[in-house]
Design a protein around this nucleic acid. Structure first.
Length: 916
RNA sequence: GCGGGGGUCGCCUAGCCUGGUCAAUGGCGCGAGGCUUAGAACCUCGUCCCGUUGGGGUGCGCGGGUUCAAAUCCCGCCCCCCGCACCA
């Protein structure tokens, strides 16, 4: 027995169930899922988060809300263009990837040389996947980003013009990891080596060569250490050059020239310098004006800094090692040099670098351990170091503060410059070594703006964030977020309206598009070229005179009003559902832009964050070849099974896992659920409700409340388990209790409730169940079953009976004999009361202990019911559960041979005698 | 390094905020039985150890502590995962 999902998809379409229209006075609920990037087929990771969003959308529909769940597609950015370019160049690995992983037909792949074609192809295909998964989306409001959707582009223009007016956009420069061959920034994923390596601020310090107008330009991370300078290092084996920089003549390593140029230094190269001609000469240490000698060292790397290093042997292991090497070789100029201690740090004596070199037994400057020693000393001194008394005005200042203060001083003297460097080598995919370039005239969003941050924090603090831990994460992100470059010069996108060379980049054109959804289907009626900023100002802000706006734009005034009322009705977003990877970027930007552009009553109401998805316990990736597309999974298991397998896998920000075994078992359970529901309907009889029927009705109340509460708190996994597994268990228990003959009323209520509970999670299965009732075309038009006041007497009875059954089972398990019969001795009401009034001393201890663990429902009512009668009423069910004939007797009815056991009976805990 | 999340009975997962009702939730797997010509599926029961009467022992990363009582609270330690920006 399986579900014909296609049929239900058609049915939903036909009834236009998910089209969201303004209904004044009716409460609305706005659900969103981030627009996915269209460079490939959507996979199970998308399915997981999308399903969570759909659960919320479907649930609120059943709760009577007017739900809007729109969806768009992301085309903005570089990757689609890059893939198209690689394809155009005939890259066969690319062809293979499209063919084998994405399963794109050959004739289509040929057309992928056009990036827009590629995006369009995936958009169509992925839309179909979302539909098949059962996402309850209003497709009339669909859009995609970039100028290919000019209406959307106009919206982005409005957004950025507005942000700029507000002063949230500015122009500036920024260091990036740069490939000199490709002439472009090199992101993490474009690197052969050096993932996670980013520009670090170095300082260049100029040391004037004595009796000359030249300066040696040394690069350092630790400007505060100039106080401890004992000499300068140059490598006799490297090439150096002389260059005119900022009005002075610098000597630097040859490799440094292009780096300086890319960092906006004006550099005029004057010619090579033989380092040997400099070694032995003296230079002046700035600030302290001491002269020190230039000495040779071999540890210098031509690709780091300027290949000029100033030496602080007291605090830098390499410097100490190079000095020791020279001294032990008897190098004359080095013999008199002694380390100068300038930093005091806990755990170390006067010369931390000397200490650690000796402790780690580092042999020479060529020893690999020197790196480790360096890191340790740097970290310890930065964290806890203080400048000593010999550091002039900085004596007593912490190292971390002194670092900046000393640099400021150098800078004032014209002897200090900022210079960016990569702390580790980065190699571009094209095999070229990268360095740092400062990109000029970039456009930034001023996320560093403290007022903006404060508004954003206010929004985060006032919205619902699930799980709670995510809120702290958001607040941390807001704290460290700096200005963010919001435009790029390549890829797809929308040009900045005032500077058409720049395209608004992906994370920046996807922040408030939810407001566009509200009007997306209406604005298509307007000629995009006539859309002005004024139109959006009116729709979103009510700014201006509608007649004038309409006339200026050539828009039908009624249409303009319709857009305005759509926005007013639907906004704000009630929930945004996303995986946690978007917390530090997209989701935070989403909040930033909302607080900038909209009033408080239009700020997002909630965010639900979930973990990532692994496949069979492994991270999903193309290189591992374990990416499963939504279509592939649906083809094997069906949409419901895919949804439930994903949804029931994990909660909070824990990663969810896709397991094909789980999916297969869910698929089977779906089939058995239909079978069970059918047999319930078929075998139901009209009758006055018995205690089992009442118990089942209580369960319906219980699960209506429980599942609803869980979904409303976005605890979707627990809700899914309750709806899909637990409630089914309760139904099975009920069917056992009524010996497979349910009451007709209960059967209908139960199937109706079950269909509703399942509708958010397994919508197709839910339709199958609901159709058994013949009440209407779709469960989505039904109501969430109301939770009523449960009849606790029924629960009390069933709980007592079940606990008796499990006690007897335990006894039978222990004694390991096949019993002929079981006799139960129970208290009636008066003997219970008697027992509670004056508990026999010999039983008191046992009774107190037992009471502590007792079901509170039973405990609270102990003595107020006739237990004996209850067991008697259910003797048939008890017998059949145990598979043994059972007799229930009062405590006074025990024959002599049972007396001893029977006397153990306590209220709530009858005595059990096994006859063999 | 900074920030976030986490380590639970074969595996995955719940519980932890608000200590006792927790040998601890649910699923998977496994075992037994039913059904079946057989198998798959399905249904029932079982699944830490000991126990011939509903009990006891051990136990929730490691080590301490608080408490009548700790998976849950406090302190220290170890380990794993994720993010750290010009990129979707």
């Amino acid at each position: 027995m399986s579900v014909n999902e296609e049929k239900w998809l058609d049915e939903w379409d036909k009834n236009r169930l998910f089209e969201a229209n303004v209904i004044p006075g009716r409460p609305k609920f706005f659900v969103t899922f981030p627009i996915p990037y269209m460079n490939g087929p959507v996979h199970l990771g998308h399915a997981y988060t999308l399903s969570r969003a759909d659960v919320i959308a479907r649930y609120y529909r059943l709760k009577g809300y007017n739900v809007i769940f729109p969806q768009g597609w992301h085309w903005t950015g570089q990757p689609i263009v890059s893939a198209a370019e690689r394809l155009a160049k005939g890259d066969q690995s690319m062809v293979k990837e499209f063919k084998e992983i994405d399963k794109v037909p050959d004739e289509i792949i040929q057309k992928f040389k056009d990036p827009v074609f590629m995006a369009r192809y995936y958009t169509e295909r992925n839309k179909n996947s979302f539909k098949r998964l059962g996402a309850s989306i209003d497709w009339r409001r669909e859009f995609h980003t970039t100028v290919d959707d000019p209406w959307f582009s106009k919206f982005i223009e409005w957004q950025y013009l507005t942000l700029r007016e507000m002063g949230y956009v500015k122009q500036g420069s920024h260091p990036v990891v740069w490939c000199p061959r490709d002439k472009s920034p090199v992101g993490d994923h474009d690197r052969l080596k050096g993932e996670g390596v980013y520009p670090v601020e170095f300082r260049i310090v100029l040391f004037k060569v004595a009796e000359s107008e030249e300066y040696l330009a040394a690069a350092t991370l630790r400007s505060e250490t100039i106080y401890g300078t004992t000499n300068i290092w140059l490598s006799p084996e490297l090439e150096y050059v002389r260059a005119r920089v900022d009005g002075k003549t610098w000597v630097v390593g040859k490799e440094a020239i292009k780096k300086l140029r890319d960092q906006m230094f004006s550099v005029e190269e004057l010619g090579p310098v033989d380092p040997k001609s400099l070694i032995g000469k003296e230079v002046v240490v700035p600030v302290i004006n001491r002269t020190v000698k230039i000495l040779p060292a071999t540890f210098i790397d031509k690709d780091i800094g300027t290949a000029v290093v100033y030496s602080v042997p007291a605090h830098a292991p390499y410097d100490y090692l190079a000095l020791r090497d020279l001294q032990s070789s008897g190098y004359r100029d080095a013999l008199d040099i002694k380390p100068i201690s300038i930093i005091e740090v806990k755990g170390y004596g006067e010369f931390p670098a000397v200490e650690i070199v000796e402790k780690m037994k580092i042999k020479s400057q060529a020893d690999a351990l020197a790196d480790e020693a360096t890191k340790e000393i740097y970290a310890a001194e930065l964290r806890e170091g203080r400048m000593k008394g010999n550091c002039g005005e900085f004596a007593g200042v912490s190292v971390s503060a002194a670092r900046k203060l000393v640099f400021d001083k150098l800078s004032e003297l014209g002897l200090g410059y900022t210079f960016y460097e990569l702390p580790e080598p980065v190699i571009c995919r094209c095999t070229t070594r990268c360095h740092v370039k400062i990109l000029e005239n970039q456009w930034f969003l001023k996320y560093s703006d403290e007022r903006w941050k404060e508004l954003t924090r206010e929004c985060i603090n006032s919205m619902k964030v699930s799980p709670e831990e995510a809120r702290r994460w958001f607040l941390d992100v807001v704290d460290w977020l700096q200005d963010y470059p919001c435009a790029r010069q390549s890829g797809l996108g929308t040009p900045l309206p005032w500077d058409k060379d720049w395209l608004v980049e992906t994370l920046s054109d996807s922040t408030v598009y939810m407001a566009f959804y509200t009007i997306a289907h209406l604005i298509r009626k307007v000629n995009p070229s006539s859309i002005s900023k004024g139109l959006f100002d009116y729709v979103y802000y009510g700014k201006g005179n509608p007649k004038e706006v309409a006339a200026a734009t050539g828009v039908d005034p009624a249409l303009l009003e319709a857009m305005r009322s759509e926005f007013l009705y639907w906004y704000p977003v009630d929930v945004r559902v996303s995986a946690k990877e978007l917390v530090p970027n997209h989701l935070t930007f989403f909040i930033f832009h909302h607080v900038a552009l909209f009033d408080r009553d239009r700020w997002p109401r909630s965010i639900s964050v979930n973990g990532m998805l692994t496949v069979e316990g492994e991270k999903m990736s193309k290189s591992k070849g374990n990416v499963i597309t939504i279509d592939e999974a649906i083809n094997i298991y069906g949409a419901d099974a895919v949804r439930v397998a994903l949804l029931s896998s994990s909660e909070y920000m824990n990663d969810a896992n896709w397991s094909s075994r789980v999916a297969a078992s869910v698929k089977e359970r779906i089939a058995s659920t239909i079978k069970l529901a059918k047999s319930i309907m078929d075998s139901a009889v009209k009758r006055e409700p018995n205690v089992y029927d009442i118990w089942m009705t209580n369960r319906i109340y219980e699960y209506s409340e429980k599942i609803g509460r869980l979904i409303e708190s976005y605890t979707i996994k627990e809700a899914a388990v309750a709806a899909f597994y637990e409630f089914g268990e309760r139904v099975r228990e009920y069917m056992k209790m009524v010996n497979q003959v349910p009451s007709k009323d209960v059967a209908e209520n139960l199937v109706n409730a079950w269909a509703a509970y399942l509708a958010p999670f397994a919508p197709f299965l839910a339709e199958e169940l609901y159709s058994l009732l013949k009440r209407g075309p779709s469960v989505m038009l039904a109501e969430w079953p109301k939770a009523g006041e449960p009849d606790l007497n029924a629960d009390l009875e069933i709980n007592l009976v079940n606990s008796l059954v499990s006690d007897v089972k335990e006894v039978l398990k222990v004694i390991k004999v096949r019993p002929k019969a079981v006799v139960v001795y129970a208290h009636d009401q008066s003997s219970s009361e008697e027992f509670l009034k004056s508990t026999p001393p010999d039983k008191k201890g046992r009774f107190m202990k037992f009471m502590r663990e007792l079901d509170p429902l039973v405990k609270d009512r102990l003595g107020s019911f006739n237990e004996l009668e209850i067991y008697r009423r259910h003797v048939e069910y008890i017998s059949s559960e145990l598979g043994v004939p059972v007799q229930v007797r009062g405590i006074g009815e025990a024959p002599a041979e049972h007396l001893q056991k029977a006397s153990l009976s306590m209220p709530g805990k009858p005595a059990i005698v096994v006859e063999r």
